[in-house]
Design a binder for these strands. Structure first.
Lengths: 178, 178
DNA sequence: TTCGGCATGTAACTCGTTACATGATTTT
DNA sequence: AAAATCATGTAACGAGTTACATGCCGAA
C-alpha cells in the first residue's frame, strides 16, 4: 500500500524539504492522522530517490553539517496525483485499546469501571483543549479553499470533532453506570 | 504491548472457545475496535499456552475433525484483570488515509476534491446504516450494566457516534467547498 | 564546555497481512 | 459431486517501534 511513500511525496511536493523537517511535520497538524519516526522516514526517502520520484541536493550548513534537501520530480508529481485521485474502500475501523478494555470490563466492579472512564475523560478533555488552542490560532479566519492552510484547518476540525464525539461516548457510558 | 494477547484472553475468559471461533468474534462487534486474522491468532494461542495463561482440550467433532477448545487458567485471569485495571496514556491518534489524501488535495481542482468527499460520504453513510441496523436488533432494550451484552452495546454506540462525527466533518468540508 | 537541538543513518524486533497448505464436514 | 464452510496451521513479506550509533552547531 505504501502510504508513507505518498505522505512524504505530498510534503516534498509542497516545498523542498529535508528528512529532518519531514520528521517534524509528522509531529504537528499531520500527526492528527499520520505520523512516522525518522527511522522509517530516512529509508523511505532513499527508496523514493531510487524510484526516481524525488531528487536531493546536499546543502552544507555552517562549517560542515550536511543536509539533504529533497525535491519532487515530474514522475513524483504524477504518482502523487494518481494516488490523490484514487477511490478506495473505507479503511478498517481503527483499533482502540481503551474500548477493547471496556468491552471486557464485566469482570471488574462498577466502581473500577467508572474510574477507568473518568480517567479517560480527563485525558480526552485535555487533548480537546489542546486542539482547540491550536484552532484558535487561526483567529476566526477560515483559510481559502484550495490552499495548504485549508488542509491544515480541515483536518484540525476533523480531529476536534473526533475528540468531541469520543467525549460524548464516555459521558453516555458514565451516565448509564451511575 | 501485546494487545492481541489480552484481546484473546478476554474472549477465552468469557467462555471456552476455539481458535476458529475467536477469529469469527474478531469479525463481529469486536471488529469495531479490534481484529486479527487467523494467521496471527493461532500462533498467539500457542504462546499463551506456553505462558500458562490458557489450556486447551482436543475435541473430536464428527468422525475425526480436531478442534482445540481453550480455557483460561487462574494465572490467565489475574493477568487479564491486571491489564484491565491499568491506566495508560492515550493511544496515538489513529491514522486516516482519507484525511491524509485530503490534506494534500490542494493540487487537485475543486471539482475533483468535491468528488472525493462525496464518494467518502456515501461509503460512511452506508457503514452508519449498517451499524444502526445492528443496533436496532437490541430492540430498545439497553442491556444491564456489567453484562457481556453491555460491552457489545457500549462499543456499538461508540462506533455509531464515531461515524456520525466523521459524516458531520465531511458535510462541513463540502459546505465550504460549494 | 556542556547541553539541547540539528541532522542522518542502521539493527533488531514486534505486529500485521497475504499467500500457501491441508484436510474434514455440511449444504446444495 | 461440487461448493461452502469448518478447522488449523506455516512462510514470506511489509509496516512500524525501540534502541543503537555518529557527528555538527549554537546558546548558556
Amino acid at each position: 500500500m505504501r502510504t508513507l511513500k505518498y505522505a512524504i511525496l505530498g510534503l516534498v511536493n509542497r516545498n523542498p524539504i529535508t528528512g529532518y523537517d519531514i520528521t517534524k511535520e509528522f509531529n504537528k497538524e499531520l500527526a492528527n492522522f499520520w505520523y512516522a519516526k525518522h527511522s522509517q522516514i530516512y529509508p523511505e526517502l532513499k527508496k523514493l530517490v531510487d524510484e526516481g520520484l524525488i531528487n536531493f541536493e546536499v546543502i552544507i550548513a555552517g562549517e560542515s553539517l550536511e543536509k539533504k534537501l529533497y525535491t519532487i520530480t515530474e514522475k513524483g508529481k504524477e504518482s502523487l496525483k494518481k494516488w490523490l485521485l484514487q477511490v478506495e474502500d473505507l479503511d478498517p475501523t481503527p483499533k482502540d485499546k481503551f474500548k477493547l478494555r471496556m468491552y471486557f470490563s464485566e469482570i471488574l466492579n462498577k466502581e473500577e469501571i467508572i474510574l477507568q472512564f473518568e480517567d479517560q475523560l480527563i485525558k480526552r478533555n485535555k487533548k480537546l483543549q489542546f486542539l482547540n488552542d491550536v484552532m484558535n490560532e487561526y483567529d476566526r479566519t477560515i483559510p481559502d479553499v484550495i490552499s495548504p492552510e485549508f488542509g491544515d484547518y480541515m483536518v484540525l476540525e476533523g480531529a476536534i470533532l473526533r475528540e468531541q464525539s469520543y467525549i460524548e461516548w464516555i459521558n453516555r457510558c458514565l451516565n448509564r453506570l451511575k
